[in-house]
Protein backbone atom coordinates (compact mmCIF):
# COMPACT_ATOMS: atom_id res chain seq x y z
CA UNK A 1 0.00 0.00 0.00
CA UNK A 2 2.99 2.29 0.44
CA UNK A 3 3.80 1.71 -3.16
CA UNK A 4 0.50 3.05 -4.28
CA UNK A 5 1.06 6.34 -2.54
CA UNK A 6 4.56 6.55 -3.82
CA UNK A 7 3.61 5.77 -7.35
CA UNK A 8 0.79 8.28 -7.17
CA UNK A 9 3.14 10.91 -5.88
CA UNK A 10 5.71 10.31 -8.57
CA UNK A 11 3.08 10.55 -11.27
CA UNK A 12 1.70 13.68 -9.78
CA UNK A 13 5.10 15.32 -9.60
CA UNK A 14 5.93 14.41 -13.16
CA UNK A 15 2.67 15.82 -14.45
CA UNK A 16 3.00 18.98 -12.44
CA UNK A 17 6.46 19.55 -13.85
CA UNK A 18 5.27 18.76 -17.31
CA UNK A 19 2.63 21.47 -17.25
CA UNK A 20 4.97 24.46 -17.26
CA UNK A 21 7.30 22.84 -19.75
CA UNK A 22 4.41 22.28 -22.08
CA UNK A 23 3.17 25.80 -21.53
CA UNK A 24 6.65 27.17 -22.17
CA UNK A 25 6.65 25.45 -25.52
CA UNK A 26 3.33 27.05 -26.33
CA UNK A 27 4.67 30.45 -25.39
CA UNK A 28 7.91 30.17 -27.38
CA UNK A 29 6.13 29.78 -30.72
CA UNK A 30 5.15 33.42 -31.01
CA UNK A 31 7.96 35.73 -32.11
CA UNK A 32 6.77 39.28 -31.40
CA UNK A 33 7.07 41.71 -34.29
CA UNK A 34 5.69 44.87 -32.74
CA UNK A 35 5.37 45.23 -29.01
CA UNK A 36 1.75 44.58 -28.20
CA UNK A 37 1.11 44.09 -24.50
CA UNK A 38 -2.51 43.15 -25.07
CA UNK A 39 -1.56 40.21 -27.26
CA UNK A 40 1.18 39.09 -24.86
CA UNK A 41 -1.31 39.35 -22.05
CA UNK A 42 -3.63 36.93 -23.81
CA UNK A 43 -0.78 34.47 -24.28
CA UNK A 44 0.34 34.52 -20.68
CA UNK A 45 -3.22 34.48 -19.40
CA UNK A 46 -4.03 31.37 -21.39
CA UNK A 47 -0.85 29.71 -20.26
CA UNK A 48 -1.50 30.34 -16.61
CA UNK A 49 -5.11 29.29 -16.91
CA UNK A 50 -4.04 26.04 -18.53
CA UNK A 51 -1.49 25.50 -15.75
CA UNK A 52 -3.92 26.02 -12.93
CA UNK A 53 -6.56 23.95 -14.67
CA UNK A 54 -4.17 21.03 -14.90
CA UNK A 55 -3.16 21.40 -11.25
CA UNK A 56 -6.76 21.69 -10.20
CA UNK A 57 -7.94 18.70 -12.20
CA UNK A 58 -5.09 16.56 -10.88
CA UNK A 59 -5.89 17.40 -7.29
CA UNK A 60 -9.59 16.93 -7.92
CA UNK A 61 -9.13 13.54 -9.56
CA UNK A 62 -6.92 12.29 -6.74
CA UNK A 63 -9.44 13.53 -4.21
CA UNK A 64 -12.35 11.95 -6.02
CA UNK A 65 -10.51 8.67 -6.32
CA UNK A 66 -9.60 8.68 -2.60
CA UNK A 67 -13.19 9.46 -1.69
CA UNK A 68 -14.39 6.61 -3.83
CA UNK A 69 -12.00 4.01 -2.46
CA UNK A 70 -12.50 5.21 1.11
CA UNK A 71 -16.30 5.12 1.26
CA UNK A 72 -17.50 3.20 4.29
CA UNK A 73 -18.09 -0.47 3.67
CA UNK A 74 -19.00 -3.16 6.17
CA UNK A 75 -15.87 -4.25 7.97
CA UNK A 76 -13.84 -1.10 7.61
CA UNK A 77 -15.41 1.02 10.33
CA UNK A 78 -12.04 2.58 11.09
CA UNK A 79 -9.66 4.22 8.66
CA UNK A 80 -6.38 2.48 7.91
CA UNK A 81 -4.09 5.22 6.76
CA UNK A 82 -0.51 3.94 6.67
CA UNK A 83 1.87 5.29 9.26
CA UNK A 84 4.52 7.35 7.50
CA UNK A 85 8.16 6.49 8.03
CA UNK A 86 10.27 9.51 8.99
CA UNK A 87 11.85 9.50 5.55
CA UNK A 88 8.57 9.56 3.68
CA UNK A 89 7.19 12.18 6.06
CA UNK A 90 10.06 14.44 5.13
CA UNK A 91 9.73 13.50 1.49
CA UNK A 92 6.11 14.57 1.54
CA UNK A 93 7.27 18.03 2.56
CA UNK A 94 10.36 18.46 0.44
CA UNK A 95 9.06 17.11 -2.85
CA UNK A 96 5.85 19.16 -2.92
CA UNK A 97 7.78 22.26 -1.91
CA UNK A 98 10.17 21.67 -4.75
CA UNK A 99 7.39 21.08 -7.28
CA UNK A 100 5.26 24.02 -6.17
CA UNK A 101 8.22 26.33 -5.96
CA UNK A 102 9.31 25.54 -9.47
CA UNK A 103 5.82 26.27 -10.78
CA UNK A 104 5.77 29.50 -8.81
CA UNK A 105 9.13 30.68 -10.03
CA UNK A 106 8.35 29.74 -13.58
CA UNK A 107 5.11 31.75 -13.44
CA UNK A 108 6.92 34.63 -11.79
CA UNK A 109 9.56 34.70 -14.50
CA UNK A 110 6.96 34.85 -17.25
CA UNK A 111 5.07 37.48 -15.32
CA UNK A 112 8.21 39.56 -14.94
CA UNK A 113 8.83 39.58 -18.69
CA UNK A 114 5.30 40.68 -19.45
CA UNK A 115 5.50 43.23 -16.68
CA UNK A 116 8.42 44.92 -18.38
CA UNK A 117 6.44 45.04 -21.58
CA UNK A 118 3.64 46.80 -19.75
CA UNK A 119 5.93 49.31 -18.01
CA UNK A 120 8.60 50.14 -20.62
CA UNK A 121 7.02 52.66 -22.92
CA UNK A 122 8.38 52.64 -26.52
CA UNK A 123 10.24 55.77 -27.55
CA UNK A 124 8.00 56.68 -30.51
CA UNK A 125 5.05 57.29 -28.24
CA UNK A 126 2.32 59.87 -28.12
CA UNK A 127 2.26 61.45 -24.66
CA UNK A 128 -1.14 62.42 -23.37
CA UNK A 129 -2.06 63.93 -20.04
CA UNK A 130 -5.17 62.63 -18.36
CA UNK A 131 -6.98 64.22 -15.51
CA UNK A 132 -9.73 62.05 -14.10
CA UNK A 133 -12.54 63.52 -12.06
CA UNK A 134 -16.06 62.80 -10.91
CA UNK A 135 -17.13 61.69 -13.53
CA UNK A 136 -15.16 62.36 -16.65
CA UNK A 137 -11.86 61.65 -18.40
CA UNK A 138 -10.12 64.84 -19.52
CA UNK A 139 -7.32 64.33 -22.01
CA UNK A 140 -4.73 66.92 -23.01
CA UNK A 141 -2.57 66.43 -26.10
CA UNK A 142 1.05 67.65 -26.21
CA UNK A 143 -0.02 70.62 -28.33
CA UNK A 144 -2.66 71.72 -25.83
CA UNK A 145 -5.71 70.27 -27.56
CA UNK A 146 -8.16 68.90 -25.03
CA UNK A 147 -10.91 66.37 -25.29
CA UNK A 148 -13.31 64.87 -22.85
CA UNK A 149 -14.32 61.22 -22.57
CA UNK A 150 -13.08 60.59 -26.07
CA UNK A 151 -9.46 60.09 -26.96
CA UNK A 152 -8.58 60.09 -30.64
CA UNK A 153 -5.29 58.42 -31.47
CA UNK A 154 -3.47 57.37 -34.65
CA UNK A 155 -3.18 53.67 -35.41
CA UNK A 156 0.31 52.23 -35.06
CA UNK A 157 1.61 54.73 -32.51
CA UNK A 158 1.98 53.66 -28.89
CA UNK A 159 0.07 55.95 -26.56
CA UNK A 160 1.08 56.71 -23.00
CA UNK A 161 -1.26 58.36 -20.54
CA UNK A 162 0.21 60.39 -17.67
CA UNK A 163 -2.62 60.34 -15.21
CA UNK A 164 -3.75 62.19 -12.16
CA UNK A 165 -7.07 62.95 -10.53
CA UNK A 166 -8.72 66.08 -9.26
CA UNK A 167 -10.85 64.39 -6.60
CA UNK A 168 -11.13 60.69 -5.78
CA UNK A 169 -9.46 57.55 -7.08
CA UNK A 170 -10.33 56.46 -10.59
CA UNK A 171 -8.94 53.74 -12.78
CA UNK A 172 -8.67 54.16 -16.52
CA UNK A 173 -9.58 50.71 -17.77
CA UNK A 174 -9.57 49.77 -21.46
CA UNK A 175 -10.78 46.16 -21.57
CA UNK A 176 -9.74 45.70 -25.19
CA UNK A 177 -6.15 46.60 -24.35
CA UNK A 178 -6.12 44.62 -21.08
CA UNK A 179 -4.76 47.60 -19.21
CA UNK A 180 -5.72 49.77 -16.29
CA UNK A 181 -4.03 51.88 -13.66
CA UNK A 182 -5.42 54.04 -10.88
CA UNK A 183 -5.17 57.80 -10.87
CA UNK A 184 -5.22 59.85 -7.71
CA UNK A 185 -4.58 63.38 -6.49
CA UNK A 186 -0.99 64.15 -5.62
CA UNK A 187 0.68 61.50 -7.73
CA UNK A 188 1.22 60.87 -11.41
CA UNK A 189 0.75 57.35 -12.68
CA UNK A 190 0.97 56.03 -16.21
CA UNK A 191 -0.14 53.31 -18.54
CA UNK A 192 0.43 52.70 -22.20
CA UNK A 193 -1.21 50.73 -24.97
CA UNK A 194 -0.58 50.05 -28.61
CA UNK A 195 -3.56 50.70 -30.91
CA UNK A 196 -2.57 48.70 -33.97
CA UNK A 197 -5.59 49.19 -36.21
CA UNK A 198 -8.44 51.68 -36.53
CA UNK A 199 -11.49 51.08 -34.42
CA UNK A 200 -13.29 52.08 -31.25
CA UNK A 201 -12.58 50.86 -27.76
CA UNK A 202 -14.51 51.30 -24.56
CA UNK A 203 -12.97 53.04 -21.57
CA UNK A 204 -14.55 52.35 -18.24
CA UNK A 205 -13.77 53.29 -14.66
CA UNK A 206 -12.53 50.41 -12.55
CA UNK A 207 -11.95 52.01 -9.17
CA UNK A 208 -14.88 52.95 -6.98
CA UNK A 209 -14.96 56.72 -7.15
CA UNK A 210 -18.43 57.76 -6.06
CA UNK A 211 -22.10 57.39 -6.66
CA UNK A 212 -21.91 57.48 -10.45
CA UNK A 213 -18.86 55.22 -10.72
CA UNK A 214 -20.76 52.78 -12.94
CA UNK A 215 -21.52 55.48 -15.47
CA UNK A 216 -18.01 56.82 -15.88
CA UNK A 217 -17.27 55.67 -19.40
CA UNK A 218 -15.53 56.99 -22.43
CA UNK A 219 -13.93 55.69 -25.59
CA UNK A 220 -10.71 55.50 -27.48
CA UNK A 221 -11.13 56.19 -31.17
CA UNK A 222 -8.27 54.84 -33.24
CA UNK A 223 -8.04 56.50 -36.65
CA UNK A 224 -5.78 55.80 -39.60
CA UNK A 225 -2.77 58.16 -39.38
CA UNK A 226 -3.98 60.47 -42.19
CA UNK A 227 -7.45 60.74 -40.74
CA UNK A 228 -5.96 61.42 -37.35
CA UNK A 229 -3.79 64.21 -38.79
CA UNK A 230 -6.83 65.79 -40.41
CA UNK A 231 -8.82 65.55 -37.22
CA UNK A 232 -5.97 67.08 -35.24
CA UNK A 233 -5.73 69.97 -37.71
CA UNK A 234 -9.34 70.76 -37.13
CA UNK A 235 -8.95 70.63 -33.37
CA UNK A 236 -5.90 72.88 -33.49
CA UNK A 237 -7.68 75.53 -35.47
CA UNK A 238 -10.67 75.55 -33.21
CA UNK A 239 -8.36 75.68 -30.21
CA UNK A 240 -6.62 78.73 -31.66
CA UNK A 241 -9.93 80.35 -32.52
CA UNK A 242 -11.48 79.82 -29.13
CA UNK A 243 -10.72 82.15 -26.27
CA UNK A 244 -8.86 80.61 -23.37
CA UNK A 245 -11.76 80.17 -20.90
CA UNK A 246 -13.97 78.52 -23.48
CA UNK A 247 -11.35 75.87 -24.09
CA UNK A 248 -11.63 74.65 -20.54
CA UNK A 249 -14.12 71.84 -20.65
CA UNK A 250 -16.99 71.97 -18.25
CA UNK A 251 -16.28 68.98 -16.10
CA UNK A 252 -17.61 68.17 -12.70
CA UNK A 253 -21.07 69.49 -13.29
CA UNK A 254 -21.67 67.63 -16.47
CA UNK A 255 -23.64 64.47 -15.86
CA UNK A 256 -21.64 61.44 -16.84
CA UNK A 257 -24.74 59.63 -17.97
CA UNK A 258 -24.72 61.36 -21.34
CA UNK A 259 -21.13 60.29 -21.78
CA UNK A 260 -22.11 56.72 -21.26
CA UNK A 261 -24.95 56.93 -23.74
CA UNK A 262 -22.59 57.87 -26.56
CA UNK A 263 -20.90 54.48 -26.72
Amino acid sequence: MHDKIRRGAAGLAALLLAAPVWAAGAGAKSEPKTVDPARDWDHLWNEVIVDITIIGILFAIVTAWFIWQARRRPGNEVGASPKLSPASAVGWVVIPIFVFLSIDLYTAANGWVLWNTFRDVPANRLEIKLEAGMYSWDYTYPNGVRTQNELVVPAGTPVVLRMTSRDTLHSHYIPDFRVKEDSMPGRITYLWFNPTKPGEHLVTCAEYCGVMHGYMAGRIVVKAPEEYAAWMKGEETSLAAATAPAAVPATATKPAKTAAKKT
Binding site: V62, Q69, A70, R73, E77, A80, S81, F100
Partner: peptide
Protein backbone atom coordinates in the same frame (compact mmCIF):
# COMPACT_ATOMS: atom_id res chain seq x y z
CA UNK B 1 0.75 28.38 -2.74
CA UNK B 2 3.42 26.25 -1.05
CA UNK B 3 2.12 26.18 2.54
CA UNK B 4 -1.47 26.21 1.31
CA UNK B 5 -0.63 23.37 -1.05
CA UNK B 6 0.87 21.40 1.84
CA UNK B 7 -2.36 21.89 3.76
CA UNK B 8 -4.33 20.60 0.77
CA UNK B 9 -2.09 17.54 0.56
CA UNK B 10 -2.63 16.89 4.25
CA UNK B 11 -6.36 17.17 3.79
CA UNK B 12 -6.56 14.92 0.77
CA UNK B 13 -4.11 12.46 2.30
CA UNK B 14 -6.39 12.17 5.31
CA UNK B 15 -9.04 10.68 3.04
CA UNK B 16 -6.73 7.92 1.81
CA UNK B 17 -7.85 4.50 3.04
CA UNK B 18 -10.34 6.12 5.31
CA UNK B 19 -13.81 4.94 6.16
CA UNK B 20 -15.98 7.76 4.95
Amino acid sequence: SIPVGLMMIGLIGTLYKGSI
